[in-house]
């Protein structure tokens, strides 16, 4: 449960650290910052981040199996126990004034000596005809949200990642048939999930195939393969990876790589002093909730260390 009003939020105060993001990385960072007795505030667009859309998390040590939402509930409880304030808003720009940063949202502005960008990533789109037109009418990016609408129907998952495999496994619980349509030779899921996919009678993999169009009338009816073949389908779940939410960082001249990910070092520092980054928005090659939390925690420590060096009273 969050601050829904401005109670506990002092707009005049310069926070020691403002963490941007609502996922595990941001929360992990804030928990450590609070324990370092820093004045910390989290500003997130969606609490839970992308992992909240995952139906199954089985690789977070200490938690054998839970849903993405379940995991974030636990994070929320932990955050609440430290009275960390959370605001649901989106920061549009950051500027440096003297020794602090001013963060502008559409509605307010906030001040902080250090900022951790943990804004995560968002689902990549296919960019093909019909995708936008049928969004919410047969095209989905979230099986947890929309899977139940396809009971006893035939759907496809586009993509070959571990996330795509998990989406297919979740959908198979309700639908008649799931096709995984993948452009590559063999899906790249974690072996444990790959095995589950292969053993599931309701799931069929169509390899070496791209789709070039989604067709329908009031809702999706079919997809068109690159070969020109029309394939009848009731729903299309797109799971082809994600793009880092790093526009904000770029505006601040924070260095990014070719993928748009923020470049960080082992201390989660960016090239801009006082600005840290962590999680899916940063340039680690392997992105998981736990690796994001790790980078977030390191960012909190580095911000603490930075304040000790730059602020006399620290």
């Amino acid at each position: 449960m969050f601050n829904i009003d401005m109670e506990g939020i002092d707009l005049e105060k310069i926070y020691d650290l403002i963490v941007l993001g609502g996922g595990p990385t941001a929360i992990g960072c804030a928990i450590y910052a609070a324990r370092f007795a820093m004045d910390v505030l989290i500003i997130g667009k969606i609490f839970g981040g992308l992992i909240a859309t995952t139906h199954l998390v089985e690789n977070y040590p200490g938690i054998t199996s839970t849903s993405g939402q379940g995991l974030m509930e636990m994070f929320k409880d932990h955050m609440d126990s430290l009275s960390i304030p959370y605001i649901s808003d989106e920061i549009r720009s950051i500027e440096k004034i003297d020794d602090y940063f001013v963060l502008h949202s559409f509605f307010q502005q906030f001040k902080a000596y250090t900022v951790c960008i943990a804004t995560g990533s968002e689902r990549k789109k296919l960019g093909i005809p019909g995708e936008e037109e049928f969004a919410g009418r047969g095209v989905s990016y979230c099986a947890t949200c929309d899977g139940p609408f396809y009971k006893d129907k035939t759907v496809c998952v586009i993509g070959g990642s571990d996330s795509a495999a998990k989406e297919a496994l979740f959908l198979a619980q309700n639908v008649k048939k799931v096709y995984i349509i993948y452009r590559g030779e063999e899906i790249r899921a974690e072996p444990i999930n790959k095995k589950r996919v292969y053993e599931n009678d309701k799931i069929e993999i169509i390899n070496n195939t791209n789709i070039v169009e989604i067709k329908g009338d009031t809702k999706v009816k079919s997809v068109i393969f690159e070969s020109g073949k029309e394939f009848k389908i009731d729903g299309v779940f797109i799971e082809i990876g994600s793009l880092p939410n790093s526009d904000l960082a770029k505006k601040l001249e924070v260095e990014t790589n070719k993928k748009g990910e923020i470049k960080i070092n082992r201390k989660s520092e960016t090239n801009v002093p006082g600005i840290f980054a962590a999680g899916d928005v940063a340039d680690a090659p392997f992105k998981q909730a736990i690796t994001g939390v790790s980078e977030g925690v390191i960012a909190a420590y580095s911000a603490f260390d930075y304040l000790k060096q730059t602020k006399i009273e620290y």
Binding site: A135, G136, R137, T218, K219
Partner: peptide, 23 residues
Amino acid sequence: QVQGVPHTVVNETENIYGMFTPQ
């Protein structure tokens, strides 16, 4: 014709598919 959530209907005529912000 809801096939995904959240699905918002404005004045019975317009549809907003998915999440949106106050802005």
